[in-house]
Write a protein that binds this DNA or RNA. Structure first.
Length: 731
DNA sequence: CACCACTTCCTA
DNA sequence: AGGAAGTGGTGT
């Protein structure tokens, strides 16, 4: 009997990224299974791939001769994960290997890479070979480089850097070496805190709901629990129950490195059984953790977005903490959403799903309201602590009465009072740097990035204008580059400015500033947070990182410097984001014995998102938001697909995007609404123009069909085209 | 029309 | 990745 199989090969080139049929040689025919990793001949090289299908015959007669599998590797993926990949590949209109790769250990997908260097300079290069000359010049400067280094730095298409390299190598001007990617061993620091607390009645009820759903219906449970209501303890008890039933658990958190507390709690409650997966692990660390999961040693996987692909066979439960967080959506290809993957995966492996948040996403709230999810509420903080008091401060009134500072009078006196009581303060502002733009008062010139269509942010520390999108930086000018005026002013406050102002009003006060400028060094964020917790500073000034599940008992006052920043983003989720942000930031206050006070400064106090957040009117907010979404046709009342075009040539984008629009219009017009092509809100980044076509449809299947159609349309396109299913933002 | 530098296509 | 086939410019 002749056996054949389909193999999804791991090659970089988009057009070759498919499944191919291979013959199965007799010596492995009896042992080969779906999910096995195999080595196959591909053109004239050998590549690894995953077996996705097996046949007991030659599937169909072909006009080419089948090649045979060379060998089988030790690793194989559970069949359920291969099935899941097929489902996801179809849903997102993406080659199946892109998902299989997320499930495999890093060693398999990393290979040796070719490194080129100059070895002889006395050979003559034809005067017509411009590319060869450019490449040679570049190599002389940097000494060694890979194909991808060169194509990125010289902005050449991969195929033409490559042919130049081949030509140069043949002439003996440069030589090729191989470099192996090295891995480092894993280092774990553990400090155990293990407290078994008695559950409150609300916690007990939530746990009962989760367990009931786990035992029979496998329905999804949404835990809506106010900040500080003890969701983590409920998760842990639920996990204990799942483990007792002989099943395993995946728990997703927004970014594990931000919550070392969570990790130490898990390590102490499930000693030796917890594996961690997140983006900051080294390749070696990731490999080790993967092996611990694969071998069955780890029963609980705690991790960020990509941990949803952990190689677990007997999965009983998936928990997604801070369910509303946008970091669960992958911002690049493949544009998967870990929440959607979790839903698919739970269904496939007959596991139950638990979502938890103090500010559930509008989509999840809607599903709970429609009884699709079971809803469990935790309305009280543990140990009888009260929720903080929030007060809106109308900054227009402050201006009218002559206060032009970034702090309102109330916030200022609140700060003074809190400092006198030796309690701590958090000031929140979602912008780093000093000033958000630099403008000439005389001619209106705004300092912009050379490569992006973005205003430069002024940074006081090195007196520079920086682009927060590409990193471009110049010395801030004293005179206007356009009209030579000296009347240059800095507008829009960032965290640096807030810190300066604090120092001005309270010269003796110690401050810590947390943003990506001050925490660029590895581990410095953790140190700064610990320092603040121990009282090393009275005031913490920070961007969104301080908004997340941190716990500082001595914080009595929180100031939101500008609640409008998130609100004014050109995005249909801006209201939801603002509501979530205020609620989450406010939740940092009054975690100890001190009742908390929160001042919310805004120029739009009438905004319902701000008012609802300040009144803890969660159902009021969702009702209003759902009403708006229903009227304007936004999720959860429709599905969306954003098609993104990127290119250095704007006219080319316009032409090709218009072509795609025409095709979509002709084929799918009955089922979809088409918006665009229009320039994206961030219309140019790193010298690449960006255009969007946004599609809305009530039928998800239509959008799935379009995704798969896009794969075909993507062939032979000169501009970079990608498609983002259910995008979180359109920037 | 031979020769070349470079691009595009294709992989089972 | 790397070989084959295709494109288009140049020199005699």
């Amino acid at each position: 009997m002749i056996k054949t199989c389909l193999v999804a090969v791991d090659v970089r080139h988009p057009k070759a990224k498919r499944e191919y049929t291979y013959l199965v040689p007799e010596d492995i025919a009896s042992s080969i299974n779906i999910g096995d990793l195999v080595c196959v001949p591909f053109n004239n090289i050998k590549v690894t791939g995953v077996v996705t299908e097996l046949f007991d015959f030659i599937e169909k007669t072909t006009d080419y001769e089948l090649k045979a599998v060379i060998s089988k590797e030790a690793i194989s993926l559970p069949m359920e994960l291969v099935d899941l990949s097929k489902l996801l590949a179809e849903y997102y209109g993406t080659p199946i290997v892109d998902f299989l790769k997320l499930m495999l250990p890093p060693k398999v997908s990393s290979k040796t890479e070719s490194v080129y260097s100059v070895c002889s300079t006395d050979k003559v290069i034809s005067s017509r070979a411009f590319n060869q000359k450019r490449v040679l010049e570049y190599l002389k400067n940097v000494e060694t480089a890979t194909v991808h280094d060169i194509s990125e730095n010289l902005k050449m298409p991969i195929a033409s850097v490559r042919s130049a390299l081949t030509a140069l190598t043949e002439k003996g001007v440069i030589k090729r070496d191989y470099r192996v990617v090295r891995r480092r061993p894993m280092v774990i620091t553990t400090n155990n805190i293990c407290e078994h607390i008695n559950l409150t009645i609300e916690q007990q009820n939530a746990l009962t709901t989760i367990i009931k759903n786990f035992n029979d219906s496998k329905r999804t449970t949404l835990i809506y629990g106010v900040t500080g209501s003890g969701k983590t303890e409920v998760y842990i008890r639920a996990i204990e129950n799942v483990l007792k039933a002989g099943k395993k658990v995946i728990m997703l958190v927004p970014e594990i490195s931000l919550t070392p507390q969570m990790l130490s709690i898990f390590r102490s409650r499930f000693p030796g059984k917890t594996a961690v997966l997140h983006s900051k692990l080294s390749q070696g660390e990731r490999f080790d953790e993967w092996q611990r999961i694969y071998s069955g040693e780890a029963l609980v996987v705690l991790g960020a977005r990509s941990a949803i692909f952990a190689p677990i066979k007997d999965l009983g439960m998936i928990i997604i903490d801070e369910e509303h967080e946008s970091s669960y959506k992958n911002g690049e290809h493949p544009y998967y959403d870990a929440r959607t993957v979790a839903e698919f995966r739970a269904k496939k492996q007959n596991a139950s799903l638990v979502l938890g948040s103090a500010t559930p996403s509008v989509e999840s709230f809607y599903k709970a309201a429609k009884q699709e999810y079971s809803l469990a509420k935790l309305t009280k903080r543990v140990s009888g602590r009260s929720l903080p008091k929030l007060e809106i401060i109308d900054m227009r009134e402050e201006l009218k009465s002559g206060n032009r500072h970034i702090f309102s009078r109330k916030l200022l006196s609140g700060m003074k009072e809190t400092l006198e009581k030796h309690k701590q303060i958090i000031l929140f502002l979602n912008r780093r740097g000093h000033s958000t733009f630099v403008i000439c008062r005389d001619c209106g010139f705004v300092l912009k990035c050379k490569y992006c269509d973005i205003a430069l942010t002024y940074h006081f520390e090195d007196k520079s204008g920086k682009c927060h999108y590409c990193g471009y930086s110049i010395k801030a000018p004293d005179i206007c580059p356009k009209c030579k005026s000296r009347n240059i002013r800095y507008f829009g406050a960032g965290t640096e400015k807030v810190e300066q102002e604090v120092k001005r009003f309270f010269p003796k006060c110690r401050t810590i500033r947390i943003d990506s400028d001050s925490t660029s060094r590895k581990g410095s964020l953790e140190k700064m947070l610990l320092n603040f917790k121990r009282g090393g500073a009275q005031i913490l000034i920070g961007t969104q990182t301080v908004a997340k599940g941190l716990n500082f008992p001595d914080v009595a006052l929180v100031g939101i410097i500008s609640a409008d920043t998130a609100l004014n983003m050109p995005d249909f989720r801006s209201g939801e984001r603002t509501f979530q942000l205020i609620t989450q930031v406010a939740g940092r206050s009054g975690r100890g014995d001190t009742p908390g006070m929160v001042y919310v400064q805004t120029y739009t106090p009438e905004s319902f998102a701000i008012r609802a957040a300040c009144n803890f009117d969660i159902s009021g907010f969702y009702q209003e938001e759902l009403k708006i979404r229903r009227e304007a046709l936004y999720p959860p009342f429709c599905h969306m697909l954003n098609i993104v075009f990127k290119s250095r040539y704007e006219d080319l984008i316009k032409k090709e995007a218009e072509e795609v629009r025409q095709i979509l219009y002709q084929k799918y017009n009955n089922d979809i609404e088409i918006y665009g092509p229009v320039p994206a809100p961030r219309s140019k980044i790193k010298d690449n123009y960006r255009y969007n076509i946004l599609l809305k449809s009530k039928q998800i299947q239509t959008l799935v069909n379009i995704c798969n159609h896009m794969q075909i349309l993507n062939n032979n396109r000169k501009v970079d085209m990608s498609w983002d299913m259910e995008p979180l933002d359109l920037l």
